[in-house]
Design a protein around this nucleic acid. Sequence first.
DNA 1: TAACTAGGGCAGGATTGTTGACTGATCTAG
DNA 2: CTAGATCAGTCAACAATCCTGCCCTAGTTA
Lengths: 192, 192
Amino acid sequence: MPDPKGAAAALDPRPPEPKSHAAAGASLLFLREEEMRAAQDLLFFAYRDFTNAADVILDELGMGRAHHRALHFIGRNPGIAVGDLLGLLRITKQSLARVLTTLVEQGYVAQTQGRADRRQRLLTLTPAGQALERRLFERQRERLVAAYREAGAQAVEGFRRVMRGIMDEAARAYLDRTEAVAREARPRAGSR
Amino acid sequence: MPDPKGAAAALDPRPPEPKSHAAAGASLLFLREEEMRAAQDLLFFAYRDFTNAADVILDELGMGRAHHRALHFIGRNPGIAVGDLLGLLRITKQSLARVLTTLVEQGYVAQTQGRADRRQRLLTLTPAGQALERRLFERQRERLVAAYREAGAQAVEGFRRVMRGIMDEAARAYLDRTEAVAREARPRAGSR
DNA sequence: TAACTAGGGCAGGATTGTTGACTGATCTAG
DNA sequence: CTAGATCAGTCAACAATCCTGCCCTAGTTA
């Protein structure tokens, strides 16, 4: 019943591409099989508990995580067009339409016609939507602040770099754009 | 229903608990509102694209992410009882039963009766299950290896610390146990 | 023997996601 | 100005995944 090849491989800590990079050497141990397995665990548990933090509030309102995701990205990108939001969430028009309909009906999201292109419905959070998004965010922020503070600024920078590396190129580009906008709006803490 | 306070707060980059920790000072900027928002983005995109990496293979087999999660944790905990697996995944018996049934029927997972407690069904991966899990893992490993290598060992350590801080205490305890077991099985690279 | 526990199973429903096709409004290029 | 492309909303039908309750069997434990 046991597969010798599979079982052996699971215990074999061979580092991929042993010494291609120069200043690496033995420290490439962090690329071992077991480390990659552990990273799977980290992503699963962190994401599970992070998203879970807001679920209590969502349940009270009869909403789900999809609503939260929409609120989050509309809040971070006021005036975003429906198509662009679809691209961020990577879901279909139908899936978004369902949550968007309830969010608009319940007064959390407002739609305004685009000026340049009047076909577009630009999405923004109403004051109620901002308040709700903030309530949801606060729950998650507690966890983040605790984790960030405990780990320290340097660890946070490492976290940021690894997370960016895991995601798609398109997602990285989006983050860069968002960051640039944030710096522009508040140009005291930024670089340059 | 509209909350003007929420709107104002959304623009206010106040650092929480300004100078409670000693060696912090201005570097506590990384706890600002915007940094927390950015962390939400990081978690969303990294998790989205990481899980997505294995979806192609899963689709071919008519399986979903729930199957992958079960395979992953059974593979990492051979002989795990159904109840313990439920505790890890944090889903209901029914949800697990569905995926477990298909995994057993298709020969990816084997059930053996517990010796100490014969009510238990201890779960292990069959050779086919190990092979499938490995195929799925390889896709995700590509991303992880690239991200880890690009970020460097120090960044990886920071990533690990932050991710641990985000998750529940119970999840951290599980990771510690798993790590200890791995060290025991291969006591050359470990500490102590 | 009685009470508890591990696991399986069923009924019924909610959420979130999919594909595909169609409509309407608007923009753009020839 | 017309033809085609694009943005968005909508419908139907379906599938994956999750949920709450409830009941059952087998085995453990007091």
